[in-house]
C-alpha cells in the first residue's frame, strides 16, 4: 500500500515574527526614559577677567528667603512684580547690575524662578537685564566685607 506523504510547505514560517517583534518593543518601551535635556544657561566670567567691582548701593539686590519670599532692595514683592520694579532703573541705566542672593535655607527652585524671570525681561518689559550675578557665599565674604 502506498502511504501518502503530507505536503511540505515551501514558505518560511513567519507567524512568530510578530511575537518576537512585540517582545522587543516592550523591552524598548520599558527601558526608554525621556531625559530632560534643556535648561537655563548661566555663563561664568572668563578666567582672565578681574571680578567686576560693583558698589552694593548701585546694584539691585534680590534676596530670596525660605518659602519663596522675594525681598528686592528691602521691599518684599511678588515674583511678577520684580521686572516692573526694575524697568525704570534699566531705562536710566541699561547696564544696571542685578544681584541675586538666596539665603542658605531658601529653596533652589526659587532662585531659578527669579533667574528665569530676569532672563525673560526682553519679552516682558522690552529691555534686557544684561548684568545678572549670583555670587556665592565665598565671593560675598571675599568681596563684600
Amino acid at each position: 500500500m502506498k502511504i501518502k506523504k503530507p505536503p511540505v510547505s515551501d514558505e518560511i514560517p513567519t507567524s512568530s515574527m510578530a511575537d518576537i517583534a512585540f517582545l522587543l518593543i516592550i523591552y524598548f518601551m520599558v527601558t526608554t526614559t525621556f531625559a530632560a535635556t534643556r535648561g537655563l544657561d548661566f555663563s561664568l566670567p572668563p578666567e582672565d577677567d578681574t571680578p567686576p567691582m560693583v558698589e552694593k548701593e548701585e546694584a539691585v539686590l534680590i534676596e530670596i528667603q525660605s518659602g519663596g519670599v522675594f525681598v528686592v532692595d528691602q521691599q518684599t514683592m511678588q515674583l511678577s512684580e520684580i521686572l516692573d520694579y526694575l524697568k525704570p532703573k534699566l531705562e536710566r541705566n541699561p547696564k544696571k547690575p542685578v544681584i541675586i542672593r538666596p539665603q542658605p535655607d531658601a529653596q533652589y527652585g526659587y532662585m531659578v524662578n527669579v533667574f528665569d524671570e530676569l532672563r525673560q525681561a526682553e519679552s516682558k518689559i522690552g529691555m534686557k537685564v544684561d548684568n545678572i550675578s549670583i555670587p556665592t557665599q565665598r565671593e560675598i565674604e571675599m568681596f563684600w566685607f
Partner: peptide
C-alpha cells in the same frame, strides 16, 4: 527644586 540653596552654592562655587 526643594534643595536648600547652601548645597547648590557650594557646588556652584
Amino acid at each position: 527644586k526643594e534643595v536648600p540653596y547652601q548645597y547648590v552654592d557650594g557646588v556652584v562655587d
